[in-house]
């Protein structure tokens, strides 16, 4: 202990304190502060860059997902549209078939009605002609009867033969 105290130099102690304080002051001012600031800056820069990269990656993924979703949607839409078109087509075909059938039926009915009415008309005309004919035959018969008995019979016979042909 005695040697230690004997070796201790108060002057050197004072000089060292002064020099050390000066050194700390100068170094803090001119070296440590700028160095630590730049290191911090760099580190936050790196951190930010990493975060930005992470964000970009997430965004990319989002975009990808969006794309996928949109693609899916488009595909579904196309599918739906095709389905609809098919349905429309089928419906149109069915509709037209129905229409055609109705139209056809209507036409057939009309035709039948026409035929019926024609037939009626024809029958009516026939009736009237028959009546006329009968009247004329009757007239002639009556006329013949007036002329001779044989002749009248002959005429009736002949006329009846004619009518049969009709």
């Amino acid at each position: 202990m005695e040697t230690l105290i004997n070796d201790f130099s108060p002057g050197l102690f004072v000089v060292q304190i002064i020099l050390l304080l000066g050194l700390i002051f100068l170094l803090v001012k001119f070296a440590w502060k700028p160095i630590l600031n730049s290191l911090d800056e760099r580190e936050t820069g790196i951190q930010e860059a990493l975060a930005a990269a992470e964000r970009a990656k997430a965004e990319m993924q989002n975009l990808q997902a969006d794309n996928d979703r949109m693609l899916q949607e488009a595909r579904a839409e196309r599918e739906a549209m095709l389905k609809e078109a098919r349905e429309i087509k089928e419906k149109m075909i069915a509709d037209s078939k129905e229409q055609a059938k109705i139209e056809g039926d209507k036409m057939i009915k009309q035709a039948q009605e026409t035929i019926e009415s024609e037939k009626k008309a024809a029958v009516a005309e026939l009736k009237s002609q028959v009546a006329e004919l009968s009247v004329s035959i009757a007239e002639k018969v009556i006329k013949e009867e007036l002329s001779g008995k044989d002749k009248q019979l002959q005429l009736v016979e002949k006329m009846l033969g004619d009518i049969k042909l009709n």
Binding site: P10, G11, L12, V15, Q16, L19, L20, F30, A31, I35
Partner: peptide, 28 residues
Amino acid sequence: VLDFSITKSVVGILLVGLFMLWAFSSLA
């Protein structure tokens, strides 16, 4: 006596101090 001499140790301290000032301020 109170000895404020520039002893060998003080020379060493000064040298190292100057070296540190030079090295770290150039790094800064």
